Amino acid sequence: MKKNTTIQISEVAKRTIAMEAAAVDNLQQYINSDFEAVVELIAQCAGRVVITGIGKSAIIGQKIVATLNSTGTPAVFMHAADAIHGDLGMIREEDVVLCISKSGTSAEIKVLVPLVKNFGNKLVAMVGNAGSFLAQEADYVLDTTVAQEACPNNLAPTTSTTAQLAMGDALAVCLIEWHGFTAGDFAKFHPGGALGKRLYLKVGDLSRQHPVPRVQPESSLREVIVEISSKMLGVTAVVGEDGALEGVITDGDLRRMLEKNIATATVVAKDIMSRHPKTIQQDELAINALEKMRQYDITQLVVLEDKHYLGIIHLHDLIREGII
Score class of each variant (00 low, 15 high):
Thr67Asn: 07
Ile64Asp: 01
Glu321Met: 08
Ser132Trp: 07
Thr266Ile: 11
Leu318Ala: 00
Glu223Gly: 08
Thr162Glu: 08
Arg320Met: 10
Lys63Gln: 05
Ala194Tyr: 10
Gly104Arg: 01
Arg92His: 13
Thr182Tyr: 10
Phe133Asn: 06
Arg48Asp: 03
His276Ile: 13
Lys307Ser: 14
Ala46Ile: 09
Asp242Ala: 09
Pro74His: 04
Glu94Leu: 13
Lys122Gln: 14
Val65Gln: 05
Asn261Thr: 11
Ile109Tyr: 03
Gly247Trp: 01
Arg222Glu: 14
Val215Gln: 00
Ala125Glu: 03
Asp253Ala: 06
Gln136Trp: 15
Ala23Cys: 07
Met19Arg: 08
Asp271Gly: 07
His190Thr: 02
Pro211Tyr: 14
Ile109Glu: 01
Met1Gln: 15
His85Arg: 03
Lys292Val: 09
Thr250His: 10
Ile84His: 02
Ser160Phe: 09
Val226His: 09
Asp25Tyr: 14
Ile64Gly: 01
Gly252Ser: 08
Gln216Lys: 15
Gly192Glu: 13
Asn69His: 09
Glu241Tyr: 13
Ala37Asn: 11
Gln8Glu: 14
His179Thr: 12
Trp178Cys: 13
Ile324Lys: 05
Asp253Gln: 09
Thr16Ser: 05
Val235Asn: 03
Val212Gln: 09
Ser57Leu: 02
Lys122Glu: 15
Val50Trp: 04
His190Met: 09
Gly247Val: 02
Ile9Leu: 12
Gly168Thr: 01
Leu112Pro: 00
